[in-house]
Design a protein around this nucleic acid. Structure first.
Lengths: 249, 249
DNA sequence: GAACTTAGTTCATATATATGAACAACGCAG
DNA sequence: CTGCGTTGTTCATATATATGAACTAAGTTC
């Protein structure tokens, strides 16, 4: 179950991040579609914790530097993700496509870092979005990081659903595809979950942590140059792997 | 009314900022004194938004770079607070005492930025903490930033409470004290709210925005050198004022 | 400077939600 | 590979909380 008021609080932070200006209680209520009295409680909670303040009497509320301080302290604890973020940016800029970093969450992958392509036509994915493990290039990449026995085990616990024409629904065929991917050096997702979207992925492993790194974009723009993109992807992954070796979590 | 689950969520972020390592659902429940099922909802909400993820199966949860990204975007909207933070740091280091930036919130001031002294004996204040306008050096500093007429008006709407022996409880006497402060170039708080704590403050004004900037520490360490500290404070305030002129909110 | 407009605040109560307890799933040790 | 100690998950219901409506107060306009 989602905590609605927490969701609203996060919506509010997103709103500040987007607008970058003080907002009045009333305007927040309108924007987030909440009663004023609820926004009052929200503001009360955040301001008593020193996260926001009233910039001047009736002049709207805005966050203090506190959130940034907390976020910075937290990032210190994950030097790895902090450091490789720059590599994601670079890869996105080199390829012109959206770059995704995903972690396995049970039978799904969740995107834990996303750098969007600058193209007007691009794959639009959000932090926290999830996909079935077996439909995405990142998920498949994570699967290839397990040895065959473990891979079998993971697949056996999964329920396959056909999302698109191309979706793999047979574990055996998927296993074969994964073998091919290992051989080839990268995994593919040919519109197996989202129509017209192609993904190219590789695994990133550090000790027991496993990530999937991928480039994703429109099929028509990616398919014909998949080997070039894969080369860039592998090069970036190698650099990240090196960064990983020098960091710990 | 505070939103309890939001408070808990913020407690969790603080916990990550402190521990800087992945935490299991169960350990979070213990640490925050919450039922596991409630922590489950909390984690569910945060992870579906891409703010945290499970670092590996049963390996604990940790924030993604998302929060940092949001916080950074928000700070872009308040270049002023972002820029002067360094000055606060500098002032704290130069004086060896805690430095506070406060904004008026009705009849109170709230600390919106705090840099703590490195001394083992120091004034310990937190973001978001509030004090009556008339008891603190920051509050008095903000009061001196109004012209006398407006100042009278503000004071007339305040209910005075004696917190300590030295607390001003008579508006007329406070007005006189404020006049003296303007003359002297800085406001004082001699343990008027918190025992043994002394504060030295100056106002910071940009258009209609008013802040109070202060140094605070133990009376015995501050009183004898208050003029030296005030000089450092004024110099810092001047630098900030210049930064202010080149920024906008 | 009085009237108006818009902003923030309070509070009783309907209503959504936090939670205890029982369950399921994972990973580790032997 | 099997059993055991944890960890994460579900769900009905007691309980805390979100909220509509009525209010106060600040700011703005004429």
């Amino acid at each position: 179950m989602r905590i609605r008021q927490l969701d609203k609080a996060l919506d509010l932070l997103d709103l500040f991040a987007k607008d970058k200006q003080p907002l009045t209680l009333t305007s927040i209520a309108a924007e987030l579609d909440m009663p004023k009295s609820s926004v009052f409680n929200l503001i009360d909670t955040l301001s008593r914790r020193g996260l926001i303040y009233e910039t001047r009497q009736r002049g709207g509320y805005y966050p203090t530097p506190r959130l940034h301080e907390i976020a910075s302290a937290i990032m210190e604890g994950d030097v790895f993700l902090l450091n490789i973020h720059d590599e994601l940016e670079r890869l996105a800029s080199d390829t012109g496509e959206t770059v995704l970093l995903a972690a396995r969450q049970g039978a799904e992958v969740a995107y834990i870092d996303v750098v969007e392509s600058a193209s007007p036509i691009r794959y639009f994915a959000r932090y926290g979005e999830r996909r079935p493990l077996y439909t995405t290039s990142t998920g498949k990449a994570i699967l290839t990081s397990y040895d065959r026995a473990e891979r079998e085990k993971v697949l056996s616990s999964i329920e396959f659903v056909r999302h698109q024409e191309t979706t793999f629904t047979d574990p055996a065929r998927l296993m074969a595809e994964l073998d091919v991917s290992v051989e080839r050096g990268f995994t593919l997702d040919r519109a197996e979950f989202t129509p017209d979207v192609m993904g190219i992925g590789v695994p990133l492993v550090h000790g027991t942590r496993r990530f999937g790194l991928a480039i994703a974009g429109p099929l028509y723009r990616m398919d014909h140059q998949r080997h070039r993109l894969a080369r860039l992807l592998r090069a970036a992954a190698d650099r990240m792997q090196r960064i990983m070796e020098n960091a710990d979590l």
